[in-house]
């Protein structure tokens, strides 16, 4: 039995619910869920892992994720099913960028180091799952930032880029956001608490 679930363009936690329904409706077989973002991919993978189903994640060319979940008597209880969802492309990590400069001291140097830091993120695997920008850190995600192309590259790879709305507003650059999404303190707290690893720069 094969089932396909198209969970693109639906908000969390819909992809998980849709996948769960499809899995519940079959005794054994494969459910393929297609999602369009990293968070949904992780959540659906977690569902599969939690139920001890075998799952395989593929990334499509257009940036979607295909999650193949196999449900069946012979897959349950196998040892290898515990870790099959771990992808080597992403680590469950949030990087919080709290300033547009890296370190304290010389501003010019701090700017250069920050540029280098973001650039190097594009070249090192695993990628963090989320990068948060707050306080003057949001200067990096708005018009005029020298790291926009690097951040766009990371976003294309599936990294979640989140800027603090209050900060964009305070610095009067809200309409200049060029990459990622705007979010509020609830999301920031959730992302900082939820990741198994948090790096503050």
């Amino acid at each position: 039995m094969k089932k396909e679930v198209d969970a693109r363009n639906v908000a969390c936690p819909k992809p998980v619910i849709m996948t769960k329904k499809a899995l519940d409706s079959i005794a054994e077989g494969t459910v393929t869920t297609i999602v369009d973002n990293e968070v949904a991919k992780e959540n659906v993978s977690k569902l599969a892992k939690g139920s001890n189903f075998r799952c395989k994640v593929e990334k499509t060319k257009d940036g979607n994720f295909l999650i193949n979940i196999t449900k069946g008597i012979n897959t349950e209880g196998e040892e290898e099913t515990t870790n099959v969802c771990t992808s080597d492309t992403f680590s469950d990590m949030t990087i919080a960028i709290t300033s547009d400069k890296m370190g304290k001291g010389k501003d010019e140097l701090g700017n250069i180091l920050m540029k280098g830091f973001i650039y190097t993120l594009t070249e090192s695997i695993p990628y963090p799952s989320t990068i948060l920008f707050y306080n003057t850190g949001v200067n990096l995600t708005v018009e005029g930032s020298e790291v926009l192309d690097d951040l766009k590259e990371l976003e294309d790879e599936g990294v979640e880029i989140i800027s603090c709305g209050t900060c964009l507003d305070y610095l009067d650059v809200k309409d200049k956001l060029k990459v990622g999404e705007v979010s509020n303190m609830y999301t920031i707290v959730e992302k900082l608490k939820g990741a198994s690893n948090t790096l503050t720069i």
């Binding site: 250069i112 540029k115 280098g116 650039y119 190097t120 020298e146």
Partner: peptide, 11 residues
């Protein structure tokens, strides 16, 4: 940067 070419400082 003064001569308007596309460059980037990298590590």
């Amino acid at each position: 940067k003064n001569i308007n070419i596309n460059i980037k400082t990298i590590p």
